[in-house]
């Protein structure tokens, strides 16, 4: 109990002096009196999660071992779909041009992962300064909120509309091409702007950057301005202040933002169709394709592998930043 109260009073820097005895007593009394059974409070949430998260997850795992009949599945246990997922023809054959090349599904998972990292990098590069500006440079709370809401404006329209809006911007006869041609940078429309890795990255960054601005903004806004002043008083340069104080204290926000983006983009499949012209495959599209031909076990294997990859990713992020201790 003592510890609990102590942690509750832990400030952002170090341990503050213990609260007066009277306060501790009050806190303990209040706690005892609020004897409402917590079990009942969490029951609806737990039931909901069991029904709509645990059960479906468990069925995905179970189904991945069943056998597809071409129009459904039967509970004949098989490892065939895992073999199909991991196997790669010519992997051990030095003669084959596919020597030591993993199978298409692992390559798809890897490319999805690699691409997600790229997008995360650009989101952080763009999102952090936005959040920093909002939290540190805008002093009026009213303005902070107003500008923050402005960041959220894109969310007022549908996700798909935001993706589609890139087409008239980047297309062969799009605004950007028109502009580049009018100032004479290019003499015929460039086709690399749309239906390319460029447009895909750009659209995803634009679609998801806000997801990291929010958390980073909140963790930056929480930083006690007195600490920054103290740092300045003690002769720290602004870079030192940032490196020693601001950056570490904003890490939880960064981590949460990155987890959001990571999870969203790993499961992404719609944007690739719209702005990449379907010229790539993500794990999402693979799952969809196999669902569409009623090969549910194989779709389940792909879904599981995606989930495992996501879990590993989230764990790595949480390993780098210990959110629990810093929030």
């Amino acid at each position: 109990m003592e510890r609990a109260i102590e942690t509750r009073h832990r400030g952002l820097i170090g341990v503050q002096p213990a609260p007066p005895e009277a306060v501790v007593e009050t806190a303990q009394r209040v706690r005892r009196e609020a004897g409402f059974p917590v079990g009942w409070l969490i029951a609806p949430g737990v039931a909901w999660l069991i029904l709509f998260l645990v059960v479906p997850l468990a069925s995905i795992i179970v189904f991945s071992f069943w056998t597809s009949t071409g129009h459904g599945m039967t509970p004949d246990p098989t490892l065939r779909y895992y073999h199909e997922y991991f196997s790669s023809e010519g992997f051990f054959d030095p003669e084959s041009k596919k020597f030591l090349e993993p199978g298409i599904f692992i390559r798809t998972l890897w490319s999805t992962f690699r691409f997600t990292l790229t997008v995360m990098f650009f989101c952080l590069l763009l999102g952090y300064p936005i959040a920093y500006f909002l939290a540190m440079q805008v002093h009026s709370f009213k303005w902070q909120m107003a500008l923050f809401l402005l960041c959220m404006v894109p969310f007022w329209t549908s996700y798909l509309i935001r993706a589609v809006a890139w087409l008239p911007m980047l297309g062969r006869r799009g605004l950007l091409n028109d502009f580049l041609m009018s100032i004479g940078v290019i003499d015929k429309p460039s086709t690399v702007l749309l239906y390319s890795e460029f447009s895909y990255t750009m659209a995803l960054v634009q679609l998801y950057v806000v997801l990291c601005v929010g958390p980073i903004f909140f963790s930056l806004a929480k930083i006690d301005k007195d600490i920054l002043e103290a740092a300045r008083d003690m002769g720290a340069t602004s870079f030192q202040t940032f490196r020693e104080i601001v950056a570490p204290l904003s890490l939880p926000g960064v981590a949460i933002g990155m987890i959001f983006i990571f999870v969203m983009i790993m499961g992404e499949f719609a944007t690739a169709v719209v702005v990449y012209g379907g010229k790539t495959t993500t794990v999402g599209t693979v799952i969809l394709n196999y669902y569409a031909v009623a090969n549910y076990p194989f779709a389940a294997v792909n879904a599981l592998m995606l989930m495992i990859a996501m879990m590993i990713g989230v764990v790595i992020i949480l390993r780098i930043v210990d959110i629990r201790s810093q929030l």
Binding site: I104, R107, T108, T280, T285
Partner: peptide, 17 residues
């Protein structure tokens, strides 16, 4: 819908990737 539909979907995935 071909008999080799699963194989087709797999190779089509490779094509798009």
């Amino acid at each position: 819908l071909m008999d080799e539909n699963d194989y087709l979907v797999k190779r089509w995935t490779e094509f798009l990737s």
